[in-house]
């Protein structure tokens, strides 16, 4: 009952089936990576799970309630969402941007209750941003800004976090930093679903890999069980070799399949 459960979720956009009967369970304390080619339907799956995209069929339950039927603020208190595109219209201070994560709790920048201020401080500290807190976010590097957005999503302290490509456009060090942040967040007892492309990075951090192709979830399991040459060919259409090295994975893409 406390899980986030998608049961045969389908989404049709402009007459095209974008997500087909996707079933998925995300438990608290779990980090799950959703892998798939561009256009596989990953973002739509997240949006439909949140109730931001209309469903053609299936059900979603977050702790026993359908997010689409909750008021937006009530939904946001249960599930935090970090979208793929992360524009920032005004040069807010880092602390104020992170404080926006507390919107559903009634907070606003410059008007934080005790609980809100504490949550913002925890998120800033967890993401190593304490010393940037009063800087305008326009002065941050790409990696610092990415961490700020993760901190914004974390500040909600929701039971679940859905993050859409939080590592996109980051260098390897910052990719690892972001994955470590969401790993820690999951270890603190929250369920995290991360959309990403780097299978090796995902395999290192995540408990499970969920593979998506053509709107369907084609595999769901541990990296050992699902990260295979065949899977990479099926999902990404690439010829790749997969090697296991102690805790790490080495995925080498050799060309088109």
């Amino acid at each position: 009952m406390t899980d986030l459960t998608l049961d045969r979720l389908s989404v049709t956009l402009d007459g095209r089936a974008v997500v087909r009967e996707a079933s998925l369970t995300l438990a608290r304390g779990e980090l799950v990576a959703l892998l798939g080619a561009n256009g596989a339907g990953k973002t739509t799956l997240l949006r439909a799970a949140l109730g931001l995209a209309p469903r053609a069929g299936g059900t979603v339950s977050a702790g026993g309630r359908d997010p689409a039927r909750l008021a937006p603020a009530e939904r946001a208190r249960r599930i935090a969402y970090l979208p793929q595109s992360r524009p920032v219209a005004w040069p807010l201070r880092v602390r104020d941007l992170v404080a926006l994560g507390r919107f559903a709790h009634g907070a606003a920048p410059g008007r934080l209750g005790t609980a809100d201020a504490a949550a913002v401080s925890r998120a800033l500290a967890a993401c190593g941003l304490a010393r940037f807190a009063d800087r305008p976010c326009t002065t941050l590097s790409g990696g610092e800004l990415a961490r700020t957005h993760v901190a914004r999503a974390m500040a909600a302290e929701a039971s679940f976090l859905l993050a859409d490509e939080p590592t996109a456009a980051l260098d390897p060090l910052h990719q690892h930093q972001v994955m470590r942040l969401v790993r820690n967040y999951a270890d603190a007892g929250r369920g995290v679903l991360v959309v990403m492309h780097d299978a090796a990075l995902a395999a290192r951090a995540a408990d499970r890999l969920v593979w998506m192709a053509g709107g369907r979830l084609v595999a769901d399991g541990s990296p050992e069980a699902t990260l295979t040459t065949e899977r990479l060919a099926e999902v990404y259409g690439v010829r790749a070799s997969v090697r296991r090295l102690a805790r790490d994975w080495l995925v080498t893409v050799e060309g088109a399949a």
């Binding site: 931001l52 937006p72 969402y81 970090l82 979208p83 919107f103 559903a104």
Partner: peptide, 8 residues
């Protein structure tokens, strides 16, 4: 998108 996500 993110505004909708935080509960707007």
């Amino acid at each position: 998108e993110a505004a909708a996500g935080v509960g707007v």
